[in-house]
Design a protein around this nucleic acid. Structure first.
Length: 452
RNA sequence: GCGCAGAUGCCCGAGCGGCCUAAGGGAGCGGCCUGCAAAGCCGUGAUUCACGGGUUCAAAUCCCGUUCUGCGCUCCA
C-alpha cells in the first residue's frame, strides 16, 4: 500500500482507503483570475503523477479537481479592467486547460465549477446557522470557529496562537464574535455578482464550494484532499471546519506539496517571463519541467532557474536518444525492477528514486547493447520505457517527418562517404546543420533528426 | 511573536542512525568508439553534508543553540 505524508497526522502514514481498491481524490483547483504560473504547474504535475501511478497500481481512481470561478480576486480584476467577471473566469480557465495540455496533465474525471454549486452552498450555510455554528452580521455569515473540534489541526496551531499571530493584519468583518471566525457568505455591494440567499444577496465566502463539491462528487470520508503548502491554512483548515461543523466526515488524508522557489527578484529577472506556464512552454520543452518536478521530492522546495530547466532539457534529449535507439523493443519490463519502482513511489511518492532507477536502466540498456547482449538490453530498455510511461514522460522514439530536401542531402552525404570524400560529406553536414538538422551515423545507416 | 519547511559537490537534487569514502540528472575534464562527428560507454569529481556544542560503539541522518532562506498566521499552488 502507498504511504504519504498526511498533514493532519504530521507524519508519513499508510493510506487507508474508504473502499479497498478504490481511491477518491479531491485536488484543490485554480481560482481562474490570471495565467497559471510554474507553481501551478508543479501542483498539477505532482498530482498527475500520483494519479497515473495509482492507476498503474490498478486502483479505481476518482480524481476531482475544481475550478473556482467566483472569487474576490476575479471581481477585483474585473473592476480594475472594467470587464465582466464572467469573461475573465472563462478566458482564464481556457488558458489553464491549454497549459495543462502542454504539460501533458490529464483532465480530471470531474471538474466542478463553484458557480454551479451556489444553491447547495446556501443549503450548507443554512444548516450551519440552524445548528448555531454560524451567525449573520451586517456584512455576511460567519462560522463560529470555536465550535469546531480541533480547529487548527492542519495549521498545527491552537486557536489562541492563530488569533495572536500576524499582529498587523486587518481583520475582515468587524462584527465578528471572534477574530478567527471566517466568512461563509458575503453580502454584495451593487454591481457585484450575487446570488440570492435567505439572509440577503451575496456570494460564497471561504471556499464553501470545495466542501460542497467534494462531498457531492466523492461522498463523505473521501480518501485524499490535496493542494499547495500555502493552502493548508486557512483554506483547507476552513474547509474542514465547515464540514466538521456540519457533522460531516471530511477527507481521510491531507497531502500538501512544496513551493517553487526562484530566488526572489534576481531569479525572476534571469528567468525572464518564464514564470508563466504558456511562456515556459515557448522557451523550453514542457517535458523538461515535468522531469524537473519528478527529480525533486514533492514536499521539498524546488529551485527553478534557467540552468535547472536547461539541465532537465538536456536530460530529456538523452531520453529521446535512448527511445530512438530502442524504438523497436518489444520486450516487457523487468518485474523485479518494476517492484522496486513500485516501492519507491509507494514510499511517500519518491519520484526522485523512480527517476534514478529509470536512468540506471537506460544506462544498463545502452551498456548491454554496446556489449552485444540484445536480450538483456531489451529488457532493461523496456523497464526504463515503462517507468517513463507511468510517470507521464512521453519520449520521442522517432525524429518525425524528414522533408524531401533534407533526405536528399542525407543521400548525397551517404554517397560522398561511400567514396570517402570526407570534405564533401562534412560540407553537406554543415548545410544540414544550417538547416536545423542533425545527422547521426548509426549501425543501420544515417538518421536525420531536427536539432532540439 | 507563534508555527511549518529547508541549508548536501560547479548547478539541480536524493539520502533521514551502521550497506554513505553520500544516488540520479546536468555541466566540465580525460579516454574508448567514429574518417571526423553525433549517440553511447568507461574513468574523474564532496574523506564531506550551513556553523558550534552534545547523545551514541556508530550521525548528513537524533538532541540543543546560532546564522541564513522559503512559507503560513484569514481569501496565494
Amino acid at each position: 500500500m502507498i504511504s504519504l505524508f498526511d498533514t493532519a497526522a504530521g507524519e508519513v502514514v499508510p493510506l487507508e482507503l474508504r473502499d479497498p481498491g478504490k481511491i477518491s481524490i479531491y485536488v484543490c483547483g485554480p481560482t481562474v483570475y490570471g495565467p497559471p504560473h510554474i507553481g501551478h504547474g508543479r501542483h498539477a504535475l505532482v498530482y498527475d503523477v500520483l494519479r497515473r501511478f495509482l492507476v498503474w497500481k490498478g486502483l479505481d481512481v476518482s480524481f476531482v479537481s475544481n475550478i473556482t470561478d467566483i472569487d474576490d480576486k476575479i471581481i477585483d480584476r474585473a473592476k480594475a479592467e472594467g470587464r465582466d467577471w464572467h469573461d475573465i473566469a472563462t478566458k482564464c480557465e481556457r488558458v489553464w486547460w491549454r497549459s495543462m495540455e502542454l504539460l501533458n496533465v490529464d483532465k480530471p474525471d470531474h471538474i466542478p465549477h463553484a458557480t454551479d454549486y451556489v444553491e447547495p452552498m446556501v443549503g450548507l450555510i443554512a444548516e450551519l446557522i440552524d445548528a448555531e455554528k454560524a451567525y449573520v452580521t451586517s456584512d455576511g455569515v460567519y462560522l463560529r470557529v470555536a465550535e469546531v473540534p480541533d480547529y487548527g489541526l492542519l495549521a498545527n496551531q491552537n486557536l489562541d496562537d492563530l488569533v495572536e499571530g500576524g499582529g498587523d493584519r486587518t481583520v475582515v468583518g468587524e462584527e465578528k464574535e471572534n477574530p478567527a471566525d471566517f466568512a461563509l457568505w458575503k453580502f454584495t455591494k451593487p454591481g457585484e455578482p450575487s446570488w440570492g440567499s435567505p439572509w440577503g444577496e451575496g456570494r460564497p465566502g471561504w471556499h464553501t464550494e470545495c466542501v460542497v463539491m467534494s462531498l457531492d462528487l466523492l461522498g463523505e470520508g473521501f480518501d485524499l484532499h490535496t493542494g499547495g503548502l500555502d493552502l493548508t491554512f486557512p483554506h483547507h483548515e476552513n474547509e474542514r471546519a465547515q464540514a466538521v461543523a456540519d457533522g460531516k466526515r471530511f477527507a481521510r488524508h491531507w497531502m500538501h506539496h512544496g513551493f517553487v522557489e526562484m530566488e526572489g527578484e534576481k531569479m525572476s529577472k534571469s528567468l525572464g517571463n518564464v514564470t508563466n506556464l504558456l511562456d515556459l512552454a515557448e522557451s523550453y520543452d514542457p517535458r523538461a519541467y515535468r522531469l524537473l518536478v519528478l527529480q525533486s521530492h514533492y514536499r521539498s522546495p524546488m529551485e527553478v532557474t534557467d540552468t535547472s530547466l536547461s539541465n532537465a532539457q538536456a536530460a530529456m534529449a538523452r531520453l529521446d536518444a535512448f527511445a530512438r535507439r530502442f524504438a523497436s523493443t518489444s520486450q516487457s519490463a523487468d518485474a523485479a525492477a518494476m517492484a522496486e519502482f513500485d516501492a519507491a513511489m509507494s514510499r511517500d511518492l519518491d519520484t526522485s528514486g523512480a527517476v534514478d532507477l529509470m536512468f540506471r536502466k537506460v544506462r544498463e540498456a545502452n551498456t548491454s547493447l554496446d556489449r552485444g547482449d540484445q536480450n538483456e538490453a531489451a529488457v532493461a530498455a523496456a523497464t526504463a520505457l515503462e517507468i517513463a510511461r507511468v510517470v507521464g514522460l512521453v519520449l520521442r522514439s522517432s525524429a518525425g517527418e524528414v522533408p524531401d530536401e533534407i533526405a536528399e542531402l542525407v543521400r548525397d552525404r551517404t554517397a560522398a562517404r561511400a567514396s570517402k570524400d570526407w570534405a564533401r560529406a562534412d560540407e553537406i553536414r554543415d548545410r544540414l546543420t544550417a538547416a536545423g538538422w542533425m545527422v547521426e551515423d548509426g549501425p543501420e545507416g544515417p538518421v536525420a533528426r531536427p536539432v532540439a
